[in-house]
Nucleic acid binder design. Structure first.
Lengths: 216, 216, 216, 216
DNA sequence: CATGAATGAGCATTCATTCAT
DNA sequence: TATGAATGAATGCTCATTCAT
């Protein structure tokens, strides 16, 4: 009598069941994040209740706590997720070829574009005094700062190539960051102000900055 | 015999009482604004309750409603107050003499200085998204526009004097505003970041911007 | 030296001043009652705040407490005042001449008319469970009950004159009171119901009641 | 081999759990209504806070909002409930046989009996002025009208049978309603008054009314 | 006598969160 | 694992009332 393959089958079935469960769990997690992201952007973090998120992803309020510790954890997860994307974009630029100054310009453009694409995440991570409470804020901040380091790298390469009027990498990097931060913050937080077309404002700012730093 | 100054005294006493009351009332109003401003910055508008403000200025929750119609009105009052102060500084520069480009630079410096001198005011007024309805927003926005118009005036004068590489007054004004806004926002909201010395960062930013816009 | 008539003069002046003060005080008291009465009727007792009354009679909120102990005392004063009027009307009927049955009918008509003329006072005094709190309620109730006694007197006279099918004065009096109370309560508390014209409903009720009690 | 009834059992268990939950939920709903009804009668609608109701039925304030949209909805629910009960009694009489006048008398008796059996329901539903807006008011009023229409039907049948001195169905119906309403309102809201025995007062009122309307 | 600023308890309602099922 | 009823603290705001002036 050959041994029954039962345990094997069981194992496999068990594994399949487990895997399926895991998949379903991850799906619900994603549903929660998607619902929360949309609501946060549309109504603002404080105005979104767990109940609204639960309604938005078709589950019960209590269920959300099986996936996230609390409301802050949802926000933190969204920020992390998003800043990984930013990081990938910036990383790609840091590593690509071409004129360092041009690369710097493209980096700034990318940064601004990212912020305008994800305004709420941007504000939550870069636009709020840290003392608030947002537990996940620091974590996300760390992820966000890696992007700043990309920019500093780009600036350094420009300095090394002798393309700048400055040799203080830190000062220039911080100034450039400030300029880009300023544009996107205004565009995001002052939607009522009669700004010129967004892309053009970003480009003008980049243009002034690049012209202002490059060697003559 | 000189007539008794009694009626006069009576009058004066009454006036003094009234005046004293008025003064006390204004003092409490200021206390409320100060407490609210600090809390708004530290915890975010939505997270600050009327009770917290009341605790913060040592009065009862109901008392606040004797001075402000509602929470929005407090925010609006803070914004107005700020714009008036800023406006006075900017106005002074607009009217002074000297090279237009230099005046522009001094305007930017003044703006940054103002923000760093009154970080609470600045953040509450310029750094908060108008989440929800925010009645007083428009009113304050109008006041804010006047300061921006000062800067635009300065830019226009530079253009008229043929000192800029650009002739789009609006685009340049908004870009400059963005750059200065960015510097001060970062300095205020990210105190943990290893920024270079504040004044030097402001000056570097101004330097890049001025060099970036002036005609070659 | 004749004694100066000063004390006398003083006395008189003093009296005049006192009288004048008293008059002014009574005037304000009346103003408060007038404002309160109108507001109570228009908006309902609970919805009227002391502040609204103060606004309505052009004085400060605190001033009202110099004339009335609290809000309930205002209500009680209004009720007393009003029920004295009812009492006078009923008394007049009790004492007039004519057929006892006709007098009874006129009494009922007068009672209903009074209730419809002063709906809020009527409801407050007769239409509310006593346990509420309305301190002054009992007092006013006493005043109101005197009117019931008038009706009982009228009924008794009808019995004595052999005009009724009944000899139980109490039962008939209470039934008649109930009928009139029912008509006015419905008319007052159910303004949305499509009642026939008010006077006609009162007359029909009186007619049925009179026809229902008189001897055949 | 008979199939395992397992799925069936599972189903049943699940159903039982759901049913039990539902039952508990309905029980709390009833507790809320009972507490609210009593409080409304004792203190008046406006003076009853959600907290008092919550205290009265031993749950937290927020819990009430899981069962009712707001305070008005509680009042509306009480009214609906009452009208349905009353409606069933009245309907039974409308459809039974016998002399129309006698049916009318029994209808009135039934109405009064209902009110005295459920004084809280009655007062809240029929004895409260729709102070303010009172959303559910109309809905409840509609339900209430059905009971009144029963009485009107009975009156009409008397008229059709030539048993009344009147031919105005509406006026007679409203007068009879008023009389019965008056008796029960007095008995319920003025427990301190020395009324004759309740049943006798109701019967006397019915007697007067019936004698007052029937043709001679 | 009159004021009106201040109080603090109270309101209806919403919330993040817990937990028995 | 998921549910959803329940909680209790918090929200913005109003109120009757007090009291220094």
């Amino acid at each position: 009598m050959t041994p029954l393959p039962k345990p094997v089958t069981m194992n496999t079935v068990q594994e399949m069941v487990t895997a399926r469960r895991e998949r379903l769990k991850q799906e619900l997690r994603e549903d929660i994040l998607n619902a929360a992201r949309e609501l946060f952007v549309r109504e603002g973090y404080e105005s979104v209740s767990i109940r609204k998120i639960a309604d938005g992803c078709g589950c019960a309020p209590g269920t959300i706590y099986l996936h996230f510790e609390d409301k802050d954890a949802i926000l933190a997860a969204i920020c992390m997720e998003t800043f990984e994307k930013l990081d990938r974009r910036m990383e790609a630029i840091r590593n690509d070829q071409g004129d360092p100054l041009d690369r710097l310009r493209r980096g700034g453009r990318q940064y601004a574009q990212f912020a305008l694409d994800h305004p709420f995440h941007y504000i939550v991570t870069f636009g709020v005094a840290p003392s608030a409470k947002h537990k996940g804020g620091d974590e996300a901040m760390q992820a966000g700062l890696r992007s700043f380091e990309c920019m500093r790298d780009c600036v350094r390469k420009c300095v090394d190539a002798g393309q700048l009027r400055f040799d203080d990498v830190e000062a220039v990097s911080q100034s450039l960051w400030a300029a880009m931060h300023g544009v996107v913050m205004l565009l995001i937080t002052k939607p009522g102000f009669p700004f010129i077309e967004h892309t053009r404002l970003v480009e003008t700012t980049l243009d002034i900055a690049m012209e202002g730093i490059r060697v003559r």
